[in-house]
Design a protein around this nucleic acid. Structure first.
Lengths: 250, 250
DNA sequence: CGCTCACAACTGGTTTGACCAGTATAACAC
DNA sequence: GTGTTATACTGGTCAAACCAGTTGTGAGCG
């Protein structure tokens, strides 16, 4: 307050942080956006570094910094000698990895993850009931039938579980659901199998059957176009499943 | 099959891919591991680039490539002039960036994103109503009051909107919600402002007021511990908001 | 003595030009 | 045809330099 007319620190929220672009950052964004918008499809090649020098009017180290960023973000892969970096297919590995990182660092607890997953897939199941195509239904029915043949082999069954949930996400016609679903599935899977391995055979079989029945219920609701029912069934399924697992002790 | 004793292409999964390390990659891993293992804590500074030249016995461009990767991965932040890159606290931008990247690379339409966001924040609002602390309520109330003073300046208002939703996510006590919320806000923001900029002043003000009223409603429900009400209000808010924006034409 | 201010010694951002070890391709010999 | 070999690329790396900005320091002022 005693300062003349200079702004002091600790100011109100009048200013937004100014983003001073690094050249490499700008190049990164340009290429990233082009890929995201489909201007560059998976398998396509970027120009060679020396060609990009002319295109971006920037030096090679600068361009290389941008390439390293793109690489880290999972957009491209560069191999020496081979002409130009290759655009990678959309891949959730990065997402899954960073989520896994956050998990291991301990910022996200398994409980919170499970809770969010339950909510997410509950909604997704509802959408699936409204939007599933005949093709979706066929795929689910087929998978369910296959899963039904493995009721006594929980490992096999658990292996296929993510696929079933994945089909639902696909049927929901929302890409965000699909991506998150895959991430959740992957993160939960190890946990799931290890917990089930602790059970005795009797319990494993009982649980597998319970799970399968819920899957059938969910499928029936989705087939009937019953969004409410599908959501409810999914919520019960995931909640019950969580309880089942946590009962195993610890 | 007819080849003598040489291995043909398309071989089985006998070999693991050999990883020929780039120098910058090796440096990246060294620093990343040091940070992950706690050898470098958030707030610490890396040595200056020129110092690292001697430590790693590598040239500056090489070291800079490693720094760009670390930056992209969310481990550090570099500011010009300031001595040495700063180690960031885990989880912060890291996850959001890879989430945003993964979302944008997956060719996700804004519609789908908005739909999922609506569902996600609806659930989150419900949790917030059940779990908000006094501190959470105070923060929301304060922010709402400040926002109420900018009803005629939609730019300012829109700027604070993500903060409000962020507070709700925080109150929901689910880290996944917080992270996703931030990601959604980030992705929606540019879109939002550009759409509102197309409106005439009258409409902007009317809309800002409508939005503010919904914010108040949501807050009231959360304060009252009314999960159903909070969820419902949030759903209405986001849905109405989407409709408002899409009316703008195109 | 304490404060201010200018200057030097940094910092990160960028460029240039060069070299190396590989790869792809096309011309060549067979 | 097939096999070989140049050659002209590619990415990976280095060195030295410049700029614009920050930080730290110390001289000089009050």
């Amino acid at each position: 307050m005693t300062s003349k007319d200079t702004l002091t620190a600790g100011e109100e929220r009048i200013f937004r942080p100014v983003e001073t672009k690094r050249a490499s950052e700008a190049i990164f964004e340009q290429i990233r956006d082009l890929i995201a918008k489909g201007g560059l499809k998976p398998g396509d090649r970027l120009p060679s570094e020396r060609n990009m020098i002319e295109m971006f009017q920037r030096s090679r180290p600068t361009i290389r910094e941008a390439l390293r960023m793109l690489e880290r973000a999972g957009y491209i892969r560069t191999v020496p000698g081979s002409n130009g970096a290759i655009v990678l297919p959309p891949n959730d590995k990065n997402l899954e990895n960073s989520l896994a990182d956050a998990l291991s660092i301990g910022h996200i607890s398994l409980d919170q993850l499970a809770e969010y997953r339950t909510a997410s897939e509950t909604v997704t199941a509802g959408w699936a009931a409204l939007r599933r195509s005949e093709e979706d239904l066929r795929a689910m029915e087929q998978l369910l039938e296959r899963m039904g043949r493995h009721l006594d082999d929980y490992e096999q069954y658990v292996d296929m579980d993510p696929d079933f949930h994945g089909l639902i996400a696909r049927a929901a016609k929302n890409t965000v659901s699909v991506i998150f679903n895959r991430t959740f599935s992957k993160l939960n899977r190890d946990y799931m199998t290890s917990r089930m391995a602790e059970m005795d055979g009797e319990r494993q079989r009982a649980m597998t059957r319970r799970v399968h029945q819920m899957h059938e219920t969910i499928f029936t609701a989705i087939k009937a176009g019953d969004a409410e029912g599908a959501s409810a069934a999914m919520r019960i399924h995931l909640t019950a499943f969580r309880d089942d697992l946590s009962q195993t002790g610890r």
